[in-house]
Amino acid sequence: MGLDDLKKKAEGVVSSDKVEEVSDKVLDKAAEAAKKATGGKFDSQVDSARDAADKAIGNE
């Protein structure tokens, strides 16, 4: 594995970590808004949907 290969791999990891961080923030805000809009009646369902979306989008 050459230096260029290692650089590309490192850039991919950094990029995917950034995507995970951003997607987590977006999902958290959306879940918070949904909980507020429903008056907390569906918090469990909102959390389940948020977790499912995170698994589909992110790497953690």
Rank of each mutant, 00 (worst) to 15 (best):
A33F: 13
E32C: 00
I57M: 02
E60S: 14
D43L: 05
G39H: 08
D17Y: 13
A37H: 01
E60N: 15
D17S: 12
E11A: 11
G39Q: 02
S15G: 04
G2V: 13
K9S: 14
E32Q: 13
E21I: 00
D28E: 11
G39R: 10
G40H: 02
D54T: 05
D17N: 12
S44N: 09
V46Y: 04
D54K: 06
G2K: 13
A10P: 04
A30M: 01
K9E: 12
F42I: 03
M1C: 12
N59W: 13
A53W: 00
A30I: 00
K8H: 10
L27A: 04
D54R: 07
K41I: 04
K9T: 15
K18I: 11
A49H: 03
G40W: 01
G39L: 10
V22F: 08
E20G: 03
Q45Y: 14
E32G: 01
K29V: 07
D5C: 02
I57Y: 01
V19Y: 07
E21T: 15
D47A: 06
K29G: 08
L27Y: 01
A31Y: 01
V22W: 08
A49Q: 09
M1S: 15
L27F: 08
K29Y: 08
A37Y: 09
S16H: 02
A53F: 04
S23K: 07
S44K: 05
R50Q: 00
D47Y: 08
V46R: 08
N59H: 15
F42R: 06
E20W: 10
Q45P: 00
V13W: 06
S15Q: 11
